[in-house]
Design a protein around this nucleic acid. Structure first.
Length: 821
RNA sequence: GGGCGAGUGGUGGAAUGGUAUACACGUUGGACUUAAAAUCCAAUGGCCGAAAGGCCGUAAGGGUUCGACUCCCUUCUCGCCCACCA
């Protein structure tokens, strides 16, 4: 029989709730700590990933609390999204009711875990009092020209007459009806995140407490590349083709140009040429290809000669213009200069189509154009490059660009990978975009006083015929705010990433009715001191949140430009080496684990199994081990080590029969405080727990030999405090059982005494030629001469160095000696 | 194809230039018990040896160092991100 976790956990959860233990308020003169974990999508049940994420956060929140910080630790739900709508289609029910049901269930589960949230601040993005502010922010962006309409293609199922997310397109077919998906152009809303690209890149430098790889992923996503735009005149017209290159040093090796199939000048070039029809067919074939199908480098590059020629401005050479599918309209200028000798893609294409290859960068081992088997993309010396021949290419790169700017041949440019953010979704379950279309006035913003534009109560969910919102007549028909004639509402809703791009601000003033948040609250709590969540949000969510923050700062609503000071990305929870998922059927349900072992066991196990950032493998055996450990510490209570209120926080020194054990335990107490504190600060929860296990082993060992001493009571007391952020319920229970008043959560965090930790003697490791041969116990700070004398007279060491001269005698103070012979 | 990260006992992991395998799981043996569970004790990288002890050992190979899991180079494997980005 183990300890009664069911009763204990229920009791303390009720206590914390009754005492409003984790409710906080803005207290300008108290040091704050804002700890945020990524809020969940309410799919119905929490999974182990959530448990891990929120347990990591909870340990830190409770620890910071005990250190005296005013800790904001909120939780909410990212409640809009497709699963609710799909559930509604399946059962023809209301996505609202489905979502609220899921939220209730998940809140119940989160409470069972004993997380220290301030539940009075809970938010759900699907409630009008929240999404009103999505619309408000959208309108501010619209005013600033940062929200605009543009045609963009969507995946479209002609049978269901509906748009599909990429994940709903399975092998080019609709996931529901299996018919072929086509690309369809729709007018859609975009946010001009590209207006902030330089700031988004620049400010990454300040995010020193973010994981390196997240910074790198953001950097790659922004994708800035520096290069030169070069202007190629056409042979027989005044038209100019602009190409972008990062390798302007290879310009003398350009032997042809390539246009993307969508390039606007292409039709002009081929007009009236014999191959016109063939090329038009080619263009149409390539453009209708679903974008997801073609698979990069593996895919063979297809293209044709257009019949046109361009003039290379650096040497007036005539070069042919081609069209090929390996050039993308979306990047750069949609046209490239092809240098087959120094670009692998160009090389393959040139060989396929018998186009000339000309080496203009010579490598150390001499290369010949005719003998190349692959492009040479490395550095070297310019050859056949006019006045730049003989220069190292890196130097030539700079000089050629300069020369081009002076002569008007080209200009230095940056190109970015980042695109504007498409936020329109042809879906019901999202924030309505607050826009009205009037035949007379055009696109009109919904006036602020009319917000929120609420989702209608009822809609029909069939999965066919477009968005359900588009068929709710009472929603669509409205009056133009400007001219008062009849008008139509926008029926698209916002992508849910919009909702989560500013939710961390709403937690500060969740009840605010006039603005999205109160300035005084936000300026106290923000930025978030520690953000914790999955690596899958390393790019989009974090980038969008940074964008919103910068935008709100420009509006003058906030004073900071980065929302998250520190970031921790936790690893995934695996079972049998695979990610837990419904489709694999390898889910372990947290609820069932809590039933059988308790929340404390689950918390302890999930922290002990691996460091937070690493992936962890679920093991039922390991879980049982954690449970066993909790039983083991709980048994300390039953051994009658209760303390009286008089004992207080001091460690009493009393003469004891077992002086050595006493001193050892005292030192262990302070070593453990040190280790656990440092490990929590650096998120090494697994080793923090290991050190507490060692501590417990030591307490038991000493208890065997010297029963019922005050030092043991003190050790247990410290143990209970140290372990309380990890396993709060059992810690509270033990605290009371042992005679403590108040609660353990209200105890200050213990401080170690470095004097007590100090050792008087050191066990020196003695190596001979780098191999451990002996260990000698010596007083601390033994002089080197004395050390040498003792070590060389050691019997074991003597047998190793006999008759061999000592070449070197290396001393690492208070640690190790290495004798080289 | 490019970038990043990782590879340590039967297992999860510890040690980031100084005793490799802390802590835990598992396994084996023992104590307690009529029995089981629970608990407690002991052993647990490999090889040689009766023992003392020795040799080998952190994916593979090489290098730097008095000393390398740790730093450098080469190779292999796995994971993640990006990917026809000019």
């Amino acid at each position: 029989m183990g300890y009664n976790f069911k009763e204990i956990e229920k009791k303390w959860q009720e206590y914390w709730e009754r005492e409003k233990f984790f409710q906080v308020k803005t207290e300008p003169f108290r040091e704050k700590f804002y700890l945020l974990e990524m809020f969940p999508y309410p799919s119905g049940k929490i999974h182990m990933g959530h448990v891990r994420n929120y347990t990591i956060g909870d340990v830190l929140a409770r620890y910071k609390n005990m250190r005296g910080f005013n800790v904001l630790h909120p939780m909410g739900f990212d409640a809009f999204g497709q699963p609710a709508e799909n559930a509604a289609i399946k059962n023809n029910t209301d996505p609202r009711r489905w979502t609220i049901g899921c939220i209730d269930e998940m809140r119940r589960e989160l409470k069972r875990m004993g997380f220290s949230y301030d539940w009075t601040r809970e938010i759900s993005t699907c409630l009008p009092e929240y999404y009103k502010w999505n619309q408000w922010i959208f309108l501010r962006m619209f005013e600033k020209g940062l929200a605009y309409r543009k045609k963009a293609s969507v995946n479209w199922c002609p049978d269901c007459e509906t748009t599909l997310a990429n994940e709903e397109v399975i092998e080019g077919r609709c996931w529901r009806c299996k018919s072929n998906v086509i690309q369809k152009d729709l007018e859609q809303w975009f946010l001009k995140i590209t207006a902030y690209k330089e700031k988004l890149l620049e400010d990454l430098k300040h995010l020193v407490d973010w994981p390196e790889r997240v910074l790198l992923m953001q950097k790659n996503w922004l994708g800035m590349s520096e290069g030169v735009e070069i202007y190629f005149r056409l042979k027989d017209s005044e038209d100019v083709i602009t190409v972008f290159t990062t390798r302007v040093d290879t310009i003398f090796g350009a032997t042809y140009l390539v246009l993307a199939p969508e390039h606007p000048i292409l039709r002009k070039i081929i007009k009236g040429k014999p191959q016109e029809e063939k090329i038009v067919n080619f263009i149409e074939r390539v453009c209708s290809r679903p974008k997801t199908v073609y698979d990069s480098a593996e895919c063979s590059k297809e293209g044709m000669f257009t019949g046109g020629f361009a003039i290379n401005p650096v040497n007036n050479e005539e070069i042919p213009i081609w069209v090929a599918d390996y050039v993308l309209m979306e990047y750069g200028t949609g046209a490239i200069m092809a240098v087959p000798a120094h670009d692998q893609r160009d090389f393959l294409f040139a060989r396929e189509n018998n186009l000339p290859i000309r080496v203009v960068i010579q490598s150390q081992d001499y290369i010949q154009s005719s003998a190349l088997t692959e492009a040479y993309e490395g550095d070297g010396i310019q050859v056949d490059s006019g006045q730049f021949s003989g220069l190292p290419n890196q130097e030539a790169k700079v000089k050629i660009a300069q020369w081009m700017e002076e002569t008007g041949i080209g200009n230095k440019r940056c190109h970015w990978r980042l695109r504007d953010w498409l936020i329109s979704r042809q879906r019901f379950w999202g924030t309505p975009i607050p826009i009205i279309y009037c035949d007379r006035c055009g696109i009109v913003a919904v006036p602020e006083e009319d917000l929120p534009v609420e989702l209608p109560e009822r809609a029909l969910f069939t999965g066919k015929g477009g968005s359900p919102l588009g068929r709710v007549e009472s929603f669509i028909h409205t009056i133009c705010p400007r001219c008062k004639s009849s008008a139509r509402r926008e029926t698209d809703t916002m992508a849910t990433f919009f909702d989560s791009s500013w939710y961390f601000l709403r937690y500060c003033s969740p009840y605010c009715k006039d603005t999205p948040f109160k300035r005084e609250d936000v300026s106290y709590w923000l930025p978030v001191d520690q953000y914790i969540g999955g690596i899958e949000h390393a790019v989009l969510h974090l980038l969008y949140s940074r964008f919103f923050t910068k935008f709100l700062k420009d509006l003058g609503l906030i004073e900071f430009s980065e929302p998250f000071q520190k970031l921790l990305t936790q690893g995934m929870v695996l079972k049998d080496g695979e990610v837990m998922s419904k489709s694999k059927g390898n889910i372990v349900d947290p609820d069932g684990i809590i039933d059988n072992f308790g929340a404390d066991t689950l918390r302890l196990y999930i922290l002990f199994a691996a460091p937070p950032e690493d992936q962890m493998e679920w093991s039922q055996q390991g879980l049982i081990g954690a449970h066993r450990f909790l039983n083991r510490i709980f048994r300390l209570v039953e051994k009658e080590y209760r303390w009286t209120n008089k004992t207080k926080n001091t460690i009493a020194f009393k003469p004891d029969d077992d002086k050595e054990n006493r001193e050892k335990l005292l030192r262990k107490i302070h070593l453990t405080i040190k280790k656990v504190t440092e490990d929590i600060e650096s998120f090494k929860f697994n080793t923090a727990i290991a050190s507490m296990m060692e501590f417990v082993n030591e307490i038991y060992r000493v208890a065997e030999s010297a029963l019922n001493t005050d030092i043991i009571q003190e050790a247990i007391k410290i143990l209970v405090i140290l372990i309380s952020p990890f396993v709060p319920h059992i810690a509270e229970e033990m605290w009371r059982e042992l005679g403590g008043n108040e609660t353990v959560s209200k105890q200050g965090w213990p401080v170690y005494d470095s004097e007590i930790i100090k050792e008087n003697t050191i066990t020196y490791v003695i190596q001979v030629n780098g191999k451990v041969r002996s260990k000698i116990e010596l007083p601390i700070d033994t002089t080197e001469d004395k050390l040498r004398e003792v070590v060389l007279s050691d019997r074991k060491i003597q047998s190793w160095i006999i008759e061999k001269p000592v070449k070197k005698f290396i001393v690492v103070p208070n640690k190790l000696v290495n004798i080289v012979i």
